[in-house]
């Protein structure tokens, strides 16, 4: 007859399951709180932006607060121009680098390159912006013309910022390809590069693309470094060349927030810009996540 009371009996079990329950609840509350925080921030932004949200705002051509004009269309286009261009550069440099690191790099060389790339991540973006201001701007002005502050400068700084992420994630995606595929291709007489091109890249494609999209999202939200090098004409326009200056969504907020009167249409419009930015980045991130999921299922 089992003794159900006393040491190790059912009574003790009751206490343990109570503790389990308590921990479960605490963890759930923790998870819930992150959702609640995000929701609260979005709700607050939407409320503050609401008075400004209309078609004149989103499609309006001119942003000139002094004349009570709050059209951000050209700013949105400029932001995409700067962001997408930077990411194209990052992809053009980063993916080949990732291929090199994953497939062609001798071990001792890799041990030098990888830590250097990781160091790049550690550079604060404002330091990069400062570097852009002091080095990149005069370089562009003296060698290519224009003001120096330009879309090109933005591209360069943003590309440097996002390069480590794209390289790192793309390399992981390439390394994740099962060895058996590589062996099969090589045993058929494929060269290393043919194996990369025809077996590895198709397999790692979604992972690489996802990393590029995530970098794009990050780059769209970059504020300080971009503001320092992009030029910011008083009344924003769509840049006509890469040497032309531009104003982007983030720099618009940064230049105006400190003196804006609360409340005013100007104030609400700044929140409107924030909301638009949030939606663009959220859309990009959701697309990236969806692609990764689809790639896994495939």
């Amino acid at each position: 007859m089992v003794n159900l009371e006393g040491k190790g009996g059912m009574k003790r079990e009751g206490q343990r399951s109570l503790l389990e329950k308590a921990i479960e609840i605490i963890l759930f509350v923790g998870a819930l709180s992150s959702i609640i925080i995000v929701f609260l921030i979005i709700a607050y932004m939407s409320l503050e932006a609401y008075p400004a949200l209309n078609l004149d705002f989103l499609l309006g051509w001119f942003w000139d607060p002094k004349k009570e004009m709050f059209g951000i269309f050209q700013i949105i286009v400029s932001t995409l121009y700067v962001g997408v261009g930077a990411i194209l550069i990052t992809t053009a440099i980063g993916v080949p680098t990732a291929i090199f690191l994953a497939e062609f790099c001798p071990r001792n060389v890799r041990n030098v390159i990888k830590p250097s790339i990781e160091l790049l991540v550690g550079i604060p973006t404002i330091v990069l912006g400062f570097f852009g201001l002091m080095v990149v701007i005069p370089f562009i002005r003296d060698n290519f013309g224009g003001w120096g502050t330009s879309v090109l400068a933005g591209w360069m700084i943003l590309a440097i910022m996002s390069l480590p992420h794209v390289i790192s994630i793309s390399e992981d995606a390439l390394r994740a390809v099962p060895n058996s595929y590589k062996e099969a291709a090589l045993a058929l007489g494929a060269t290393r590069w043919q194996t990369v091109k025809k077996v590895l890249l198709p397999y790692a494609k979604t992972g690489i693309l996802a990393s590029v999209l995530l970098a794009l999202g990050r780059v769209m939200g970059e504020t300080m470094a971009v503001t320092m090098v992009i030029g910011n004409p008083r009344v924003a326009w769509i840049p006509t060349s890469i040497l032309d200056r531009a104003k982007v969504l983030t720099s618009t907020i940064l230049l105006d927030w400190s003196y804006v009167e609360i409340p005013s249409m100007h104030y609400h419009s700044l929140f409107g810009i924030g909301l638009v930015l949030f939606f663009i980045v959220a859309l990009i991130d959701v697309t990236a996540t969806y692609m990764v999921k689809r790639g896994v299922i495939k």
């Binding site: 000139d64 008083r234 230049l255």
Partner: peptide, 11 residues
Amino acid sequence: SDITGAASEKT
């Protein structure tokens, strides 16, 4: 008149 819209803003 107003300052040209092409002027770069410094802070």
